[in-house]
Simulated scan of single mutants.
Amino acid sequence: MTFEEVFNRVIKFMKIKPTGNYRLMIGTDSQVHSKTTVFITGIVIQHAGKGAWACIRRSVVPRKMLHLHERISLETTLTEEVVSMFSEDKKNRMIDIVLPYLYQGATFSFEGHIDIGSGQRNKTREFVNEMVARLEMIGVEPKIKPDAFVASSYANRFTKKAGKYTPT
């Protein structure tokens, strides 16, 4: 799908019930395979308590990326890239769907999910401040584990099987 097709699906999903509570969430996960590193970026529009629509974007680096900071940084970059495709005009179009229904409880939020955690046993904890600041600078609400489920669960499940395919 092109980005325009993805955006139109998001709009269509939100218009079904404009009085809903919507969360647009973007997150990336990676998996090192034998000769490649596969990155999957998930794009999810969730209608709280009522379901979601989602899709993925696949990127392949033709080498094993073994340095954790490099992988986490590229995951964040790929998330930022997709977030940036949602221009001010596109964000305003999504907000305009729920705006007439704010007093009826309608909401819209835009989140960037980062597959890192601040727990003492988490190897990625030293990168939390850096990656969170990057997403805040582009105007998206950063989420880390355990709240970053688009990266840590949704995208993650596609990184495992993605290595079975030849890079394009």
Score class of each variant (00 low, 15 high):
M14G: 00
M14A: 00
M25G: 07
T28M: 12
D29P: 14
D29H: 11
H33V: 06
T36N: 13
F39S: 06
G42T: 06
H47R: 14
G51A: 00
A54K: 15
A54T: 05
C55Q: 10
C55Y: 03
R57S: 12
V61L: 08
R63F: 13
M65E: 12
H67Y: 10
H67P: 01
L68I: 15
H69P: 06
R71D: 03
R71W: 00
I72G: 02
I72C: 09
L74Q: 08
L74K: 12
E75H: 05
T76P: 04
L78K: 11
L78P: 08
T79G: 09
S87I: 09
D89N: 14
K90V: 05
K91M: 15
M94Q: 02
D96H: 09
L99F: 11
P100E: 03
Y101S: 01
Y101N: 01
Y101C: 00
Y103L: 09
G105S: 03
A106R: 00
E111A: 07
H113Y: 13
G119E: 12
G119N: 09
K123I: 13
T124L: 10
A133Q: 15
R134N: 08
L135P: 00
G139Y: 05
V140G: 03
E141Y: 04
K143C: 09
I144H: 00
F149G: 10
N156L: 10
G163P: 07
Y165I: 10
T166I: 13
P167W: 02
P167I: 02
P167T: 04
T168V: 15
